[in-house]
């Protein structure tokens, strides 16, 4: 109910504070959530990936995250510095359905917020909720260390409720990953992102 109430507020908020105001609001919501979840530390990538599978990390509040352990990110020395992760279903899809069947339709501002975010921040949003997700993950990553090193999260690709897809050329370039590789992941997943050691020197990037 709270999620549907917040969605109903988007239209009003966007009319009063502008779509950029709504973007800032969602970013603060994501940031606040991540900050309050607190810090975590892991011995290495295997223990982090197990914690993620078992729903014990800050990232787990988004639902079942799949660590794609066959898709390791390596640095210039060939050491594993991160992995690709994916959500089969975006945590907001049930909310979108709840809005559809309680209010009738998503507010027009949903599209407007996503478009503004794509133009001004990062061309990756397929709906207004992607704004919270990206900020939330970036902030959660800062609170986690693996073998004493801080993490960073990069949003790579998204598939929306209506089938629209977005692939982040900017972030894929950083990782040196072929966009077609990520596109194939979107057949089975709605949101694909990378978690890696902050400041790692990447091969081919």
């Amino acid at each position: 109910m709270l999620d549907v109430a917040l969605v109903s507020l988007i239209q009003d908020m966007s009319e009063k504070a502008g779509v950029d105001g709504t973007i800032q609001y969602w970013q603060r919501v994501g940031e606040n959530l991540a900050r309050r979840i607190g810090k975590e530390a892991y011995m290495g990538w295997p223990s982090f990936n197990v914690a993620l599978r078992e729903g014990r990390t800050g990232f787990s509040i988004e639902g079942d995250v799949t660590p794609l352990t066959d898709l390791a990110i390596t640095d210039v020395d060939g050491d594993v510095v991160g992995y690709i992760y994916a959500l089969k279903q975006c945590v907001f899809v049930p909310t979108i359905l709840r809005v559809r069947y309680s209010v009738g339709e998503l507010p027009r501002a949903d599209r407007a917020v996503a478009e503004e975010y794509n133009n001004s921040v990062h061309d990756i949003a397929v709906c207004n909720f992607c704004v919270i997700h990206e900020k939330f993950r970036e902030e959660v990553a800062k609170n986690i260390t693996i073998a004493g090193q801080h993490l960073e999260s990069l949003l790579l690709a998204t598939r929306g409720f209506t089938g629209e897809t977005k692939i982040s050329e900017r972030n894929l370039k950083k990782l040196g990953i072929n966009p077609e590789h990520v596109r194939s992941l979107l057949r089975n997943y709605e949101c694909v992102y990378a978690i890696m050691m902050k400041g790692a020197k990447l091969k081919g990037a």
Binding site: L2, D3, R28, V29, G30, N32, V91
Partner: peptide
């Protein structure tokens, strides 16, 4: 029924 909530949004909203 649409009863189930969205825990991600609910927790984020409580903090907000």
């Amino acid at each position: 029924r649409l009863i189930e909530s969205n825990p991600f949004v609910d927790v984020a909203t409580h903090l907000f």
